[in-house]
Design a binder for these strands. Structure first.
Length: 364
DNA sequence: GTATGCTTTCGGC
DNA sequence: TTACGGCCGAAAGCATAC
């Protein structure tokens, strides 16, 4: 039976959620913003609706620049409330999960799903299921989404990207090659700027070029593992399965300082709450961690990190604070500008229960 | 040299 | 003319081991 994988992406998610809450916004430019608190308009745009995008405003630009572009256009400037979108996301994922064989969320507003069994391997039936998922999200939450269906994750992902907003792209197995061929290699998962350059040096510009590439030459250029994956993906034959999410692999917090500094004591004091929060977040989700990272963003907005991996899972806040101080001291010596933003990250997460049994095993 | 795993940076929203 | 978050996972860079 042919495999049928889907990828769904909610359109301009945060801004659309705001439109649902207040429908009069729909005809206006809407920007959902993160305010840093440093000055009145200090911060950036997180998401913009399509009305705002048509006026040159997109995610990531400074709020003050966005306001300038939207001058006289009656913009709605909305403060981002993450918990609100998180709650909507949970309801959405739950709605989708009842209509698919397997669901793998990959972000707050997107997910892979598998409907092979439910559709009986039939793409007509699959398209109807996909349409019904879209309809249920529209009906229950008022939200539009863009969906792609295909025989692999790579095809489904490229499908959801092919038509938006409110798109449904069904790539039947026999249409896979003609769909993939003309796309730019940079659209493939696994191809960042470096890999793209490497591929261009081999004369590979499109996904079709990649599918027909000489495997030996490709291996030599980008490594065996990536080459093998890309050749498969480029022909729509990547075999990655849709697997239910395993939860986050890291937790981080970053804050913008009221004023630039490189005083380590001040930085560590500013981050003590954040440290306690991520530690308790990990612990309440049943996991421990081994790696602590200090993050800083300098006055010129360049970002730098420094980390330390403990030999055993670490949750002693005093020890973590001491290490954090050390990491920031090293960061401070390696850079020549003040810190504008500082943060922490914990990673190397593992299941606490496994760790307990492991240390018991070692200890006993 | 290449595979692997860890550290650092990048990029999307 | 400038303007500039917070969080995540992926990609790239690097060290180490064969």
């Amino acid at each position: 039976m042919p495999r049928i994988v889907g990828h769904i992406d909610l359109d301009y998610f945060y801004a659309q959620v705001e439109e649902v809450e207040n429908p009069s916004l729909k005809t206006r430019p809407v920007i959902v913003c993160v305010f840093s608190g440093r000055t009145e308009d200090s911060g950036v745009v997180s998401t913009a609706n399509y009305v705002a995008r048509a006026l040159g405003v997109k995610a990531g630009i400074p709020i003050s620049l966005a306001k300038k572009k939207l001058e006289g256009k009656d913009p709605a400037v909305i403060k981002m409330v993450h918990a609100k979108y998180e709650a909507v996301s949970e309801r959405i994922m739950s709605l989708i999960s009842t209509q698919v064989d397997a669901l793998e969320p990959t972000g707050i507003d997107e997910a892979f799903f598998d409907i092979t069994d439910r559709a009986g391997g039939d793409y007509e039936a699959a398209a109807a299921i996909a349409q019904s998922i879209k309809d249920s999200l529209k009906h229950e939450e008022g939200l539009t989404s863009s969906v792609g269906l295909g025989r692999s994750k790579a095809v489904a992902k490229l499908g959801s990207d092919a038509k938006k907003p409110d798109g449904l792209t069904v790539v039947k197995p026999e249409d896979t090659e003609s769909f993939l061929s003309p796309l730019d290699v940079s659209k493939l998962y696994g191809v960042g700027p470096k890999t793209e350059t490497a591929l261009l040096e081999l004369g590979l510009k499109t996904v079709g070029d990649l599918a027909r590439a000489d495997p030996t030459e490709l291996e030599r250029k980008i490594g065996r593992k990536l080459a093998a994956y890309l050749v498969q993906a480029a022909s729509g034959n990547d075999s990655d399965q849709v697997t239910p999410g395993q939860g986050p692999t890291q937790f981080s917090r970053i804050v913008t300082l009221k004023r630039d500094t490189r005083d380590i004591g001040e930085v560590v004091a500013q981050l003590s709450d954040a440290l306690a929060e991520v530690v308790s977040k990990a612990s309440s989700s049943g996991r421990s961690f081994k790696t602590l990272t200090a993050i800083c963003v300098l006055t010129d907005l360049s970002a730098h990190t420094k980390n330390h991996t403990f030999e055993a899972p670490q949750r002693d806040v005093a020890k973590l604070t001491e290490e954090l101080r050390k990491l920031f001291a090293e960061l401070g010596e390696s850079v020549d500008k003040d810190f504008r933003r500082v943060g922490i990250r914990i990673s190397g997460l593992s299941d606490s229960r496994d760790q307990v049994s492991l240390s018991e095993y070692i200890g006993g």
